[in-house]
């Protein structure tokens, strides 16, 4: 996935000279995960900036650039360090188009690695995507694999509104698939049916796709046919794909690693409740992280949703 994101950045920077990168250690070092490796060398120091260590400064100045017609792609080194930048994201980036009645807009991408499972320090593993989902004016995109990461990031850079782009660092180097050199985009706001099935709908995104797939492989041996949806974007959310699937299966399990309360799963359940309640054969199940601080890594495997918990949830809704 690292290479796919790097390729998207490289191609978009070539296509549009207004695309610039900034962040901590993104230039000479190429980022702590090497996502931006080689780009400063290729495009120069006036396209790729190593900034002072200041998340709010990075996002705030990016906003000023974006309203002046640049397309900054800002990197926050870890999503757990984005909170100082909330001031600028919540109070400005998300509101500029509305506040100015469209006179100004903010074509800004804020990339940040999120998710656990890599035995990291505190603040380096959390999944707080639902905080962004709650903010009007943002789009929140979370790819699950390299192919999607390239297509979605390309769309995000070309988008005229601010996009939070959360990269599951657990799959940065874990999943390999063919990523075409061609210029392609994947639309923001559309989910993907990864696999069709009839008995139960599994909804996941980011690093949880792989865990969901493992669970599906296990239950399908017992003849439970699963439909797997990769949300790809959590804001705006693709109701249509979710509803069509749930209408077919009547059963649904949502998997995410962020905390349970007020999470993406809660939102999906609310939407199903609004529109699809009578189509359901069983209550919707959520397999999520807990309302605890993301633990130091000795305990992280207990926190993260994994095959056994997902299998359990699938069986619960199927046997209801």
């Amino acid at each position: 996935m690292v290479d796919a994101i790097n390729l998207a950045l490289k191609q978009e920077m070539k296509r549009d000279k207004n695309v610039i990168l900034l962040g901590e250690d993104v230039g000479k070092e190429g980022g702590v995960f090497r996502v931006t490796a080689g780009l400063q060398k290729l495009y120069g120091k006036d396209r790729v900036y190593d900034t002072p260590l200041s998340e709010n400064g990075i996002v705030g100045t990016s906003i000023g650039m974006a309203v002046r017609g640049l397309r900054p792609v800002a990197e926050i080194q870890f999503s757990g360090f984005v909170y100082p930048a909330f001031q600028q994201i919540v109070s400005h980036a998300s509101r500029i188009r509305n506040r100015s009645r469209g006179r100004f807009n903010c074509p800004l991408v804020i990339r940040m690695p999120y998710s656990g499972g890599i035995r990291a320090l505190e603040h380096h593993s959390e999944s707080m995507e639902s905080l962004f989902m709650h903010i009007p004016g943002l789009k929140v995109v979370i790819p699950s694999n390299p192919y999607d990461a390239k297509g979605l990031l390309t769309s995000a850079i070309r988008d005229d509104d601010p996009v939070i782009f959360m990269e599951p660092k657990r799959v940065y180097r874990a999943i390999k698939n063919e990523v075409p050199e061609d210029d392609y985009t994947i639309p923001i706001g559309k989910a993907k049916v990864v696999k069709e099935g009839n008995n139960v709908t599994i909804i996941a995104y980011g690093a949880m796709l792989r865990e969901a797939q493992k669970a599906i492989d296990a239950v399908e041996k017992e003849n439970v046919s699963c439909e797997l949806i990769d949300l790809r974007t959590i804001k705006p959310m693709d109701n249509e794909t979710i509803f069509n699937s749930v209408k077919k299966t009547g059963r649904c399990v949502i998997v995410h690693e962020g905390p349970r309360t007020g999470g993406v799963g809660a939102e999906i359940i609310a939407r199903i409740n609004d529109h699809m309640l009578l189509e359901l054969e069983a209550p919707v199940e959520r397999v999520t992280g807990f309302d605890t601080v993301f633990p130091y890594f000795q305990n992280e495997n207990h926190y993260l949703p994994e095959e056994h918990r997902i299998v359990n949830a699938i069986k619960k809704v199927v046997e209801f």
């Binding site: 650039m65 309203v67 400005h92 006179r103």
Partner: peptide, 24 residues
């Protein structure tokens, strides 16, 4: 630019805008 109510927050936009002029 538009008015900015959160005190001081627009200083960063001003710097970003100036930075954009330099880049462009």
């Amino acid at each position: 630019f538009t008015v900015s109510v959160p005190v001081g927050s627009q200083a960063l936009h001003a710097v970003g805008s100036a930075w954009a002029s330099k880049i462009k």
